[in-house]
C-alpha cells in the first residue's frame, strides 16, 4: 500500500533527522548554544565514512564507529576553541557558528572538489512484503536511531555525567559548586552531539551521493524539530523529528515533492504561532 510505503520512508528520513536533532537539542538545552555548524558535522560524518570504507578499506560497521569518534573529537575541538568564547553572548555565538558552518562547507568544496562520491554499504538487500519494499539499510537507520535515543535517555537519567548535564542546564552556579564546571559539561554535550551527527552521516552515506552541501537541509529541518519538540527535551525532539520526516514523505508522495520543505515550515510556523500567543515578557 502506498501509504505504508510512504510511512516507512518518512520514518527512515525522520531517523536521520532525529540523530541530528538530538545532538542539537542536547547542546542547546545544556549550554544555550545554537550550533549552526551541526549540519557541517553531519556532512563530515558522511565523508569520514567514505574515507574509511572507500579509501582505507575498513568495513562499513567499523566505519560508523570511527565516524562517531572522529566527529565527536571535531565537535569538542570546536566547542573549546569557538563556542566557549561566546558564553553569554548568544547572538554573537550564533553568528560565529554560522561562519564556522560556511567555512567548513566551503573548505569541503575546495578539498573534496565537485566530484560526487558514493559509499557502498553492505546492506543492499530489500525486504519485500507484497507491494511494500523495505530496504534493509533504512530499517537499520531506524533501529539505530531509536537505540541511540534510548541510550541517550538512560545516560541523561542514570549516569553521573548525565545528571551533571542536567544540573548545568538548571543552574550553572549550583553545578559549579558541586564541582562540575561548564567546560566539562560543554565537552560532554558537544562530544555526544558530535558523535550522533557522525553516526547520522555514516548511516545516510550508502543511500545518497555525498556532497559538501549535504548538511544544510538536515540542519534546517532539525531546527524545526527541536523548536517544535521543545529545546532540551529529548523525547519531544525525537517525536518531532519523526513527525517532520513523515510529513515530508507524505507531502512528497501525495502532493508534489517540491512542496515538502515549505509545507514543513508552514506547519512549524503555525504551531509556534499558536504556542506563543502569550507575549514573552509577561508570565
Amino acid at each position: 500500500m502506498e501509504a505504508l510505503q510512504a510511512l516507512f520512508t518518512g520514518l527512515a528520513g525522520g531517523a536521520t533527522l532525529a540523530l541530528v536533532a538530538l545532538g542539537l537539542t542536547l547542546v542547546f538545552g545544556v549550554l544555550r548554544v545554537v550550533n549552526f555548524a551541526h549540519g557541517a558535522l553531519f556532512m563530515l560524518g558522511a565523508y569520514t565514512c567514505y574515507a574509511c570504507t572507500e579509501v582505507a578499506g575498513i568495513g562499513y560497521f567499523p566505519a560508523i564507529l570511527v565516524s562517531a569518534a572522529a566527529i565527536a573529537a571535531v565537535s569538542v575541538v570546536l566547542a573549546l576553541v569557538v563556542f566557549r568564547r561566546f558564553r553569554g553572548l548568544e547572538l554573537e555565538g550564533a553568528i560565529a557558528a554560522v561562519a564556522l558552518a560556511v567555512a567548513i562547507e566551503n573548505a569541503g568544496i575546495i578539498f573534496f572538489k565537485a566530484v560526487p562520491r558514493q559509499v557502498q554499504g553492505p546492506l543492499t538487500q530489500v525486504v519485500d512484503l507484497g507491494s511494500l519494499h523495505l530496504p534493509v539499510q533504512r530499517i537499520f537507520m531506524i533501529v539505530v536511531a531509536v537505540a541511540l535515543f534510548g541510550a541517550l535517555s538512560l545516560f541523561v537519567a542514570r549516569t553521573h555525567w548525565g545528571r551533571a548535564l542536567r544540573a548545568v542546564q538548571q543552574d550553572e552556579e549550583a553545578a559549579q559548586l558541586q564541582g562540575i564546571t561548564v567546560t566539562q559539561a560543554m565537552i560532554v554535550a558537544f562530544a555526544i552531539g558530535g558523535a550522533l551527527a557522525g553516526v547520522a552521516g555514516a548511516l545516510v552515506a550508502p543511500d545518497q551521493v555525498l556532497s559538501p552541501t549535504m548538511g544544510t537541509t538536515p540542519l534546517l529541518l532539525a531546527f524545526v524539530a527541536i523548536v517544535v519538540g521543545g529545546m532540551g527535551n529529548i523525547g519531544g525532539t525525537l517525536a518531532a523529528a519523526f513527525g517532520v520526516g513523515i510529513l515530508q514523505s507524505f507531502v512528497s508522495t501525495y502532493w508534489v515533492p517540491q512542496a515538502a520543505t515549505w509545507t514543513s515550515f508552514a506547519v512549524v510556523l503555525l504551531i509556534l504561532a499558536v504556542r506563543s500567543r502569550r507575549p514573552v515578557v509577561y508570565a
Binding site: T9, S211, M214, F250, S252, T253, V256, P257, Q258, T261
Partner: peptide, 16 residues
C-alpha cells in the same frame, strides 16, 4: 512529475 532539484532522496516521489 517534477523533482526537487536539490533532493538526494527520491523514494517518496518514486512511490508516487
Amino acid at each position: 512529475t517534477f523533482t526537487d532539484p536539490s533532493a538526494t532522496d527520491f523514494t517518496a516521489v518514486l512511490t508516487k
